[in-house]
Lab assay of single mutants.
Amino acid sequence: MLEGKVKWFNSEKGFGFIEVEGQDDVFVHFSAIQGEGFKTLEEGQAVSAEIVEGNRGPQAANVTKEA
């Protein structure tokens, strides 16, 4: 698991990027966000996630919002 913060997230398109210190930004799709209801993230929000290899490079999986 790694910790980072949301760089930006487009709720209409359902994707965005997470900033991780010392690494390239990581793509995040709404389907990777854990929880019930409408899955979205806010800019600057702290999150933790796993990194997996997607079709277009590294992407976030099992994204959870930090308190």
Rank of each mutant, 00 (worst) to 15 (best):
M1G: 09
M1E: 08
M1D: 07
M1P: 11
L2K: 11
L2C: 12
E3G: 09
E3A: 14
E3K: 15
E3M: 14
G4M: 06
K5A: 06
K5F: 12
K5Y: 13
V6Q: 00
V6A: 00
V6I: 09
V6T: 02
V6D: 05
K7W: 05
K7Y: 05
K7H: 06
W8P: 01
W8R: 00
W8K: 00
W8D: 03
W8T: 00
F9M: 01
F9E: 04
F9D: 01
N10L: 07
N10A: 07
N10E: 04
N10H: 09
N10V: 05
S11Y: 11
S11M: 10
S11F: 10
S11V: 12
E12N: 12
E12G: 10
E12A: 12
E12K: 14
E12C: 15
E12H: 13
K13A: 08
K13W: 10
K13V: 07
K13D: 04
K13H: 10
K13Q: 08
K13F: 08
K13M: 10
K13S: 08
G14N: 01
G14E: 00
G14K: 01
F15T: 01
F15C: 06
F15W: 14
F15A: 01
F15I: 08
F15L: 04
G16A: 02
G16F: 05
G16M: 03
G16T: 02
G16D: 00
G16R: 00
G16W: 04
F17N: 01
F17H: 02
F17T: 03
I18Y: 01
I18C: 04
I18T: 00
E19D: 06
E19A: 14
E19F: 10
E19I: 11
E19N: 07
E19Q: 12
V20Y: 06
V20P: 01
V20K: 05
V20T: 05
V20G: 03
V20E: 03
V20A: 06
E21C: 14
E21K: 12
E21T: 11
E21F: 12
E21S: 11
G22V: 02
G22E: 05
G22H: 07
G22L: 04
G22C: 09
G22N: 09
Q23A: 11
Q23H: 14
Q23D: 07
Q23Y: 15
Q23G: 10
D24R: 14
D24P: 15
D24V: 12
D24A: 14
D24K: 14
D25Y: 07
D25M: 08
V26E: 00
V26R: 00
V26L: 14
F27N: 01
F27C: 06
F27Q: 02
V28I: 08
V28K: 01
H29F: 10
H29D: 02
F30P: 02
F30R: 04
F30C: 08
S31N: 07
S31R: 07
S31W: 08
S31D: 03
S31L: 08
S31F: 04
A32Y: 05
I33S: 01
I33N: 01
I33H: 01
I33Q: 03
Q34F: 09
Q34E: 10
G35H: 07
G35C: 10
G35F: 08
E36V: 12
E36L: 10
E36A: 12
E36I: 11
G37C: 10
G37K: 05
G37W: 06
F38G: 05
F38H: 07
F38E: 06
K39E: 04
K39C: 10
K39V: 08
T40A: 07
T40F: 11
T40S: 10
L41E: 02
E42K: 14
E42S: 13
E42D: 09
E43H: 13
E43T: 14
G44H: 06
G44D: 04
G44K: 05
G44R: 04
Q45A: 09
Q45Y: 05
Q45W: 10
A46V: 14
A46F: 14
A46D: 07
A46I: 14
A46K: 15
A46W: 15
A46C: 14
V47P: 01
V47T: 01
V47M: 03
V47R: 00
V47D: 00
S48D: 04
S48N: 10
S48Y: 14
S48C: 14
S48M: 14
S48G: 08
S48R: 15
S48Q: 13
A49P: 01
A49K: 00
A49C: 15
A49G: 12
E50H: 13
I51V: 11
I51F: 07
I51D: 02
V52A: 08
V52M: 09
V52D: 04
V52K: 09
E53W: 15
E53M: 15
E53V: 14
G54V: 05
G54E: 05
G54R: 06
N55V: 14
N55Q: 14
N55I: 14
N55W: 14
N55P: 15
R56G: 08
R56Y: 12
R56T: 07
G57I: 03
G57W: 06
G57N: 04
P58E: 05
Q59W: 13
Q59S: 07
Q59C: 09
Q59D: 03
Q59F: 13
A60I: 03
A61I: 14
A61W: 09
A61V: 13
N62S: 10
N62E: 05
N62R: 11
V63E: 03
V63A: 01
V63R: 00
V63M: 00
V63T: 02
T64F: 13
T64A: 09
T64S: 10
T64E: 08
T64D: 06
T64W: 14
K65D: 05
K65E: 05
K65M: 10
K65N: 07
E66Y: 15
E66N: 14
E66C: 15
E66W: 13
E66P: 12
A67L: 12
A67D: 12
